[in-house]
Write a protein that binds this DNA or RNA. Structure first.
Lengths: 210, 210
DNA sequence: AAAACTTCTTAACCCAAATCAATAATATTC
DNA sequence: GAATATTATTGATTTGGGTTAAGAAGTTTT
């Protein structure tokens, strides 16, 4: 990569640093240095697996660039539970925290570059940098809140509402992933989503119906 | 209550202390004292609401004794999202963390005694007792893991599997709550659960089927 | 013990989405 | 640009759970 020549050595970590600073404005330069030392950049080609079912997930990975999907295999079919793009963490946090084999997969949908922190390194950071626990707490709390939202939507909204929310909240998603993956994410078959789309579309043509 | 006469003043906090010690074995007596000072014991009669939709949830409540249900109202019907009994925390943690009005209710299903910590007190503890952040992180991580499990079950298991899991994981639940609440918790109508039960039962009678 | 209420079961019918199957529209490869 | 995959649509049929309704079983009240 010629570009690296023009970058300061740690350019690849700047986005992660900004993310940390946002969650923990009191983070000192000194403590960032400790954290920075353990970071590793890693690249995945489109289609490569970042997390594999049956293997313990050993890293939290901050996505610098790219797009991934997280899914389970259930009865030989994949059930997508989420997409994750730039400036977000991807991890089977369940496996990561419990140190048990993951029951999910994470696959790169585009060529993807991540910044990894290993489990052991993170524990070391929690010991050496006490305020990192605050960061860890906020990240866990954030994941918890995200999951609350998702759960609530899953339980209390119709599929049409959820479909509308997906396309309004993440318009880029429609451009970057095929529709059958959106269907899997919504928990329905591609056929059902196709029918819903045409239903929504026809309503628009005829009359204004919420 | 005459009993209180025979107890040391903080007897009611011992269970919570044990819970903390289990999550954070390094907790010092000194730090526990800081924590203990802000705790409040509160009792709810069967039927009383501990968390109300529309009100910010201002406490995390550790259940000393009793049983509660947490639920949403959706189209005038209640959708139970969980039960919580002795030695567990009950809280609309989403409302608690975001400081926004809760969209859930928590109601005592039996006379219930809780030990409360208010939001402000907890923030104070996070400041005064740095290691409390570690505790807070672990609690948030624990809630996250719980929610992962629930989500995974919801998405990937049949209702029959989930029904079986409920009765094997929490046999006490069947004794302490009516069946229609279990149905709501499973996300189906009481009628459907009744049908499923008879289906499961008939299978047992005829042949060994999974 | 009778009355009133709550909870559970069973049956008939309905509907949304799954499944199965065929075809159409797009993308990708050669 | 023809051939081949991949993705999306549409139709016919099946199915699991919702809804409605009625009755049975179990509790509580009086």
């Amino acid at each position: 990569m010629l570009q690296t020549f023009f970058m300061p050595e740690n350019e690849q970590f700047q986005r992660l640093k900004a993310y940390y600073m946002q969650l923990l404005p009191t983070l000192t330069e000194e403590n960032w240095k400790v954290t920075e030392q353990v970071l590793k950049v890693r690249s995945f080609k489109k289609g490569e697996l970042i997390v594999k079912e049956g293997h313990v997930c050993n890293n939290v990975s901050f996505i610098n660039k790219g797009l991934v999907k997280m899914y389970f295999m259930v009865n030989g079919k994949e059930k997508i539970i989420g997409f994750c793009n730039e400036l977000n963490y991807i991890c089977d946090y369940q496996s990561f925290l419990t140190r048990k084999p993951a029951n999910s997969f994470v696959q790169a949908l585009e060529n993807t570059e991540v910044v990894e922190t290993s489990f052991d390194d993170l524990q070391m950071i929690y010991e050496k940098v006490p305020e990192a626990n605050k960061l860890g707490r906020k990240i866990a709390e954030g994941l918890f809140l995200e999951m609350c939202e998702a759960n609530h939507a899953q339980a209390n909204e119709t599929i049409i509402q959820r479909y509308r929310k997906v396309i309004s909240d993440h318009p880029w998603l429609m451009q970057r992933v095929p529709q059958y993956m959106i269907a899997s994410y919504l928990g329905i078959t591609p056929e059902a989503l196709s029918r819903i789309k045409s239903r929504v579309h026809n309503k628009k043509k005829s009359l204004v119906v919420i």
